[in-house]
Design a protein around this nucleic acid. Structure first.
Lengths: 166, 166
DNA sequence: AAAGTTGCGCAATTTCATTTCTCATTCGCA
DNA sequence: TGCGAATGAGAAATGAAATTGCGCAACTTT
């Protein structure tokens, strides 16, 4: 069933695959201490139950010519659900917007954007984002450098917490 | 050599592996239209040259009990390089901080944090972040919901751009 | 305590990854 | 124009991994 609890081995599997998504199943099985077939069954189950959403290569966007990363804080005029959804849908259709999170507080959304250069970002900003319907104000901040970028779950914190609650 | 330009096939490989990092090499080769051995060689080369930084399972942190996501805007008192680096190093050692980006403008850093619940985030905020050396002010925003989360490169934009420049 | 359920490991089969060779194309250079 | 050398593709072979089927043991449930 969806929601059935994970045991120690499942969490180890998730941690290993988060760290290296292309690990072979036999290597994974060795690391978590069971044989390959049950290990593969567990992985499939974790995928079906949604614990694993997918696997992705981590591609260096700067190497590919996307030199610019920007965080954009967006405020809307109206915040009825229909307005919020409409803006989210627009974000999903803007390829330069890679993330769109709705926030509490004065700012309604934060967007993480990429662009080949400052010029094309400005073009997107003035031509698309600022002129989009219902957008009240946008404050942008250029990313100077990135000190840490590890999307995912801090499994060490999770284990601590489980140990404490036990 | 590092820096040698990518051709059409290389970009297709990157796009495919970004979309599905566990694709088998034969499937990948079929999709990009070459045979398996040269395809594997290209993948290895892309890895060595740093175009591919790694592969990761996309694990659902909410399913694992991390209910809370927060963006934290951090300002420091002093911004000499040593001060900036020191703060970055601290971020790398905080497991709840998953991303740390240095920004231009009034805010010095933006952090993306996760936590099991609000209480443990508040505890981190007051006990660690706010009391850390050189931290002047922190403004936090809770993530209400996430409309888009697709880290990586918009390959459609890349291809457009290459077609235009050609 | 018997029956059902769950999950493991072993063994066999299919599929894939990886290496090795050979061949075609391209480019520099005489 | 023609001769290597280099680059990169495909074909075949080999070894490793993924996947399936099955039996067994432990734990629940009744």
């Amino acid at each position: 069933m969806p929601g059935s609890k994970l045991d120690e081995i499942d969490r180890m599997i998730l941690a290993e695959l988060q760290a290296d998504g292309r690990m072979t199943n036999v290597e994974l099985a060795k690391r978590v201490g069971i044989s390959a077939p049950p290990c593969l069954r567990r992985v499939r189950t974790l995928e079906e139950q949604g614990y694993i959403r997918g696997y992705h290569a981590d591609v260096d966007s700067r190497e590919l010519g996307f030199e610019v990363q920007v965080f954009a804080m967006v405020g809307l005029h109206k915040q009825a659900e229909a307005d919020l959804s409409a803006f989210e849908e627009r974000c999903r259709n803007w390829p330069l917007v890679r993330e769109c999170h709705m926030l509490n507080g004065e700012v309604d959304f934060i967007l993480k954007c990429v662009a080949p250069d400052l010029r094309s970002f400005q073009s997107f900003l003035t031509g698309e984002l600022l002129t989009a319907d219902n957008v009240a104000h946008v404050k942008t901040s250029l990313v100077i450098r990135c000190a840490k970028d590890e999307p995912g779950v801090p499994f060490d914190v999770l284990e601590e917490r489980l140990a404490r609650d036990a």
